[in-house]
C-alpha cells in the first residue's frame, strides 16, 4: 500500500513535470489564464449580441468546461509523450503496480483542471460583474472538482486511444470540440436536438454544469446531489474504460511485440 501511494504521488508528479514543462509562467499564463478568460468573454459577448442567455449562464458553462484543457491535453500528452520518448515501454514493462501508476499520472491533471476552472470562475465573475451567492461557493467548488475528475477520466480514455491513433493533439482537440457543443456549455442542453441531448447524458460535464447552474440559482447541495453523483459516475466509467484499454494494449504488445512505441 505504501509503495502504491509513493508510485501514485511521486510517479505522477515527476512525469508531469518532466514531460510537460507546464510549470513555467510562459506556458501557464497563455494556456491556463489568458486563453480561457478570453474564451469566456467571447461566448459571453456572443450571447449578449445574440440576446440569448445571461452572463452567469456563460460564466458557469465555460468555467466548468475549461477544466478540459488540462484534463484532455495534459492527460493525452502525458501518455502520448511517454510513447514519444519511448518511456512507455519501460513503464508498461516495469514491475510497479500499474493502477496506482496511471492514476498517479492522473492526479496532478485533476488538480490542474480544477485550478483552471476555479480561476476562470473567480476572474470571470469579477470581469463580467456576476455575483454568485456566498452560500453557493462551497458546493460550487466541490462541483468543479468533480467535473475536473470526470473530465480527466475521459482524458485517460482518450490518452489510451491516442496510443493507437498517434495524433494525440488532434484527438484531444476534437473531443474538446464535442464537449463544447454537446454539454450545455453555451447552449442549454434542452435547446439541442433530441439525439444530441441523449449523447450529452453520457458525456462528462453535462451533469456538473447543470448542477453548478442550479447552485448559483439558489438550489441546495441536497437538491443537486443526484447530478453530482452521475457526473462522478461518468468519470469513473471513462477512467475504467481508459485503464482497460491501456491494459489491453500492454498485453497485446507483450504478446505480439507490436505496440508502436516509437
Amino acid at each position: 500500500m505504501r509503495t502504491s501511494l509513493r508510485i501514485f504521488f511521486l510517479g505522477g508528479l515527476t512525469s508531469y513535470r518532466a514531460l510537460f514543462h507546464w510549470l513555467t509562467p510562459w506556458i501557464l499564463i497563455p494556456t491556463f489564464v489568458v486563453g480561457p478568460i478570453f474564451q469566456l468573454l467571447f461566448f459571453a459577448y456572443v450571447g449578449r449580441a445574440a440576446g440569448v442567455g445571461d452572463d452567469t449562464f456563460y460564466l458557469i458553462g465555460n468555467a466548468v468546461e475549461l477544466a478540459s484543457i488540462p484534463c484532455l491535453f495534459a492527460m493525452g500528452n502525458t501518455i502520448g509523450n511517454e510513447r514519444y520518448t519511448q518511456t512507455l515501454g519501460l513503464l508498461l514493462a516495469s514491475p510497479a503496480r500499474r493502477l496506482p501508476l496511471f492514476l498517479g499520472r492522473a492526479l496532478p491533471v485533476v488538480v490542474n483542471g480544477f485550478a483552471v476552472s476555479f480561476l476562470v470562475l473567480v476572474l470571470g465573475a469579477l470581469v463580467l460583474h456576476v455575483s454568485i451567492p456566498v452560500a453557493a461557493w462551497a458546493p460550487l467548488v466541490a462541483v468543479l472538482a468533480v467535473c475536473a475528475f470526470s473530465c480527466t477520466g475521459l482524458g485517460l480514455a482518450s490518452a489510451a486511444l491516442a496510443l493507437r491513433v498517434r495524433e494525440t493533439a488532434v484527438l484531444s482537440n476534437i473531443i474538446m470540440g464535442v464537449l463544447i457543443v454537446f454539454c450545455g456549455v453555451n447552449v442549454a442542453v434542452s435547446a439541442l436536438p433530441a439525439w444530441m441531448q441523449s449523447v450529452a447524458q453520457v458525456l462528462p460535464l453535462t451533469h456538473g454544469i447543470e448542477a453548478a447552474r442550479e447552485l448559483v440559482a439558489g438550489a441546495s447541495w441536497a437538491a443537486v446531489m443526484p447530478l453530482v453523483r452521475d457526473e462522478a459516475l461518468i468519470g469513473v466509467v471513462y477512467g475504467a474504460i481508459g485503464m482497460a484499454m491501456l491494459f489491453f494494449f500492454e498485453r497485446e504488445s507483450r504478446r505480439h511485440a507490436t505496440l508502436e512505441l516509437a
Partner: peptide, 13 residues
Amino acid sequence: FFATTIFFMYREN
C-alpha cells in the same frame, strides 16, 4: 465546433 455552438445560440434567438 465553435460555429455549431454559435448557430445553436442564434437559432435559439
